[in-house]
């Protein structure tokens, strides 16, 4: 199925697509709970791919494997030409500057202001910037997510949607090449969710990133994703565009489009 997609895409654009993320034969279990079973995925440069799956199907586990927070039992994950499993911690940190991660629960640091939250990745990755440049960067990403006025606030003072935007700003501040979104719209009202979806789309174009988006929010997926991968029974069960999958007659796929 993956091969078919590559060929289609080549036919459309005439150029060999460059893949920024390749997952091959990924297995991950927790004790007897087999979460991922022979999962495969390819993400091409400039593309937004959504992974769709039920709650508990292992979506978060999947992207935590990609960023090296969990170690897969088997299989290879290739990010920007590096095999994640073979990197030492310094090389892994290097890759992590290029891969942004938007956590499902935002993961803003409660004890820090918005400014300190945004500066944290810059400082910790030893990115050499003067104080003025750092402030400039913080202001720039905050402007991009439309929350410039919150710079000195604490995360607890912000609403859920605002926190999501700040978390997005924190992933954007390192100018990543790939962004992994873990359920960006879950827990938000439809209007705020739509705002976030629009923002994801805009930021993807503005920062020229590829994105892997994990969700079960059809509206969000429809707006942002070029291609959808169905994660069912630990596998890449089906994939295609929204329209293609909607026509799919498989029972397990159909459930999601009702």
């Amino acid at each position: 199925m993956q091969a078919v997609f590559t060929i289609e895409r080549k036919a459309e654009t005439g150029v060999e697509p460059e893949d920024v993320l390749t997952i091959k034969n990924l297995y991950k279990s927790f004790g007897s709970n087999h979460v991922l079973i022979d999962f495969n995925l390819e993400l091409y440069k400039g593309e937004n791919v959504a992974v769709l799956g039920k709650s508990g199907s292992g979506k978060s586990v999947l992207i935590k494997c990609i960023i090296g927070l969990l170690t897969p039992d088997q299989g290879t994950i290739n990010v920007l030409g590096h095999n994640i499993g073979e990197l030492n911690i310094h090389e892994l940190d290097e890759i992590r500057t290029k891969v942004g991660f938007l956590f499902q629960s935002n993961a803003l640091y409660d004890s820090m202001t918005v400014r300190e939250n945004l500066e944290f990745p810059l400082r910790r990755h030893w990115i050499k910037l003067t104080t003025a440049e750092r402030t400039g960067k913080v202001k720039e990403v905050l402007n991009n997510v439309g929350l410039a006025h919150t710079i000195d606030m604490m995360p607890a003072e912000l609403s859920g949607g605002m926190r999501k935007r700040i978390a997005l700003a924190r992933t954007l501040i390192l100018d990543p090449e790939i962004i992994l979104y873990d359920e960006p719209t879950t827990g938000l009202d439809p209007i705020t969710g739509k705002g976030i979806s629009i923002l994801i789309k805009e930021m993807g174009e503005k920062y020229n990133t590829s994105a892997l988006l994990i969700s079960h929010d059809m509206k969000c997926i429809r707006m942002t994703a070029d291609r959808i991968i169905m994660l069912i029974d630990g596998k890449c069960y089906a994939q295609g565009t929204y329209e293609e999958l909607k026509k799919n007659n498989d029972e397990k796929v159909k459930q999601f489009f009702e």
Binding site: L69, D110, F120, R124, H125
Partner: peptide, 20 residues
């Protein structure tokens, strides 16, 4: 409580991906 809530809200994971 502090580390517990950091763990639960994935702040500890976030630190790890931020080179810490």
């Amino acid at each position: 409580a502090e580390l517990g809530s950091m763990k639960v809200t994935e702040q500890i994971d976030a630190m790890e991906v931020s080179g810490t």
